[in-house]
Amino acid sequence: LSLDDAKQQGLVGERATGYLGIVTGSPNAELKRMVDEINRKRQALYQDKASKAGVAIDIMELRTGQRLQERAPAGEYIQDQNGQWQRK
């Protein structure tokens, strides 16, 4: 199962924090593992890029999250300010 498939099937979506969130109420183990692994890799990237740009990591997370949500195509899920999943 690729990330794009999971997104198109509405299983996962982009959160405002720059990390991936699980949308489905009943995720299987494989899905949970994939989301955790992707978020772990994203965090390492955020840390590296934040130091390159000379900013705190949360700036990098927040700004990436915002851009990923903007770029999410119609039909995929994004999480709004109070944690509700909205279908774009």
């Binding site: 198109q8 770029r71 195509p73 119609a74």
Partner: peptide, 16 residues
């Protein structure tokens, strides 16, 4: 576009 979006290549993702 919205019907066939999943079939489009990733490089076209930003296109709306």
């Amino acid at each position: 576009m919205s019907l066939y979006a999943p079939l489009l290549p990733a490089s076209l993702k930003p296109l709306q």
